[in-house]
Amino acid sequence: MQTVKMVISGAVNSGKTEFIRTISEIEVVSTERRATDDTRMVKKETTVAMDFGRISIGKDLVLHLFGTPGQKRFDFMWEILSEGMLGLIILVDSTRPETFRETNRIVDFFTSYRDTPYVIAANKQDRPNAWSPDELRLALRQKPDVKVIPCVATDRETVKNVLLELLYIILERSSEG
């Protein structure tokens, strides 16, 4: 059985858990605990370890989805999670500009040392005060070739679309055979 891994990252309350829950074919293994630090201001419960989801591709291949912890004190886990990943999805809460700097830091962490295929999912696009994907690209200072894709993490079709956009990038870079 071959397994491949995708990492879903983003700032606290960007929608990582919901994103994985929406697409995973198994109940998401999430180690949710009551938040004990400043994230409590944002969210009653937040991810303190990681979320894990799975999509089986066939009898011989499975795709694992790993959500990273949002809080800074778990940064050390990002390095471990990113080992051998196929690609990266960065979720950003389109309604909270106060998280854009943190999102930048996360993008920088995952992409500065590795040529990692990644897309940015502009989550919560169903909210009235959401910044558009184009505005987010500028706010996050991403290059024009980086895909910023509208998303609602609870909506399966938009989540599928984000995954597919990332897979198309991976396909372009994949080897023949």
């Binding site: 040529d115 295929p117 023949e176």
Partner: peptide
């Protein structure tokens, strides 16, 4: 460091 995995097309 394990760069991104490259899968077959």
């Amino acid at each position: 460091d394990g760069g991104p995995s490259r899968l077959k097309r």
